[in-house]
Each structure stands twice: as structure tokens, then as C-alpha cells.
């Protein structure tokens, strides 16, 4: 199955501060392990919400909302696309990540039956 891992990093990503070289190195090491285990299909980091747009649909009406958005705790700062055998496997991997803050959410991607 495929899962999307959503990184919700609180204020850190919104401040657009680049991570320290040590943090980066640790992260890259972890990411490399994931790649070697055939887990990672794709990943990406997002710009702060100050550069984001929202579009709200209400019947025929469309409303554009400019960033930054207020609910920093819920904002997605990055994502991973993983190939795993189960949610539990994803959880096992994620627990080993070198993060010390933020919330990470694992969501299974809907695919056709048996996939």
C-alpha cells in the first residue's frame, strides 16, 4: 500500500528558517535508509504558507484566500510518499525518524481493491 506522510511542524516551517546542517545530515541519513529499504516513492518540502493561496468553493462562487494562514499547527510543511506493507510498518519507520518536534500524520492512499 501507499501512504502519504504529512509533516506538521508547528511554527518552524512557517518561519522559513533553514534547518541546521546537523539536523539536515541526520534527516538525510534517515531518508537514505528509507530509500534503501525501498520505502520512499517521493517527497517534497513546502514553502511557508505566506506564499500560499487557498481557493474556497461555494456553489458557483470561488473565493481566493491569501496566505499566511493562521492555524500553524495544522499546516503541512512537507510530505513523503511511501510504499509499505501496512500502516504498522509505516509507523515503525516513522518512530525512528530523528525529529524532536511537530506532528506527523500517516494517511493511506486509496487504491483499487487489494492494492
Amino acid at each position: 500500500m501507499r501512504v502519504l506522510v504529512l509533516a506538521k511542524e508547528d511554527h518552524q516551517s512557517e518561519a522559513a528558517k533553514p534547518p541546521t546542517p546537523e539536523t539536515m545530515a541526520e534527516f538525510q541519513k534517515f531518508n537514505e535508509e528509507l530509500v534503501k529499504a525501498g520505502v520512499v516513492l517521493g517527497d517534497g518540502r513546502l514553502y511557508p504558507s505566506s506564499q500560499a493561496k487557498r481557493l474556497r468553493f461555494d456553489g458557483k462562487k470561488r473565493t481566493v484566500i491569501d496566505g499566511p494562514f493562521a492555524e500553524t499547527k495544522e499546516l503541512v510543511a512537507g510530505y513523503w510518499l511511501w510504499q509499505v506493507r501496512s500502516i504498522d510498518e509505516a509507523l515503525e519507520w516513522l518512530k525512528r525518524a530523528p525529529f524532536n518536534a511537530g506532528t506527523y500524520e500517516i494517511r493511506q492512499i486509496f487504491e483499487f481493491e487489494g492494492m
Binding site: M1, A37, G38, Q83, R85, G114, M115
Partner: peptide, 18 residues
């Protein structure tokens, strides 16, 4: 039987790293 395809693909990807 997509699960077998996934298993094979994953083995292949691991092998490509090794």
C-alpha cells in the same frame, strides 16, 4: 494480484540500492 507486484517491485528497488 497487485500485492505480488508490489513485493517484487520493492525487492527490485532494494536490489537497485544494493
Amino acid at each position: 494480484r497487485p500485492a505480488l507486484c508490489e513485493d517484487a517491485l520493492r525487492l527490485g528497488r532494494i536490489l537497485a540500492e544494493l
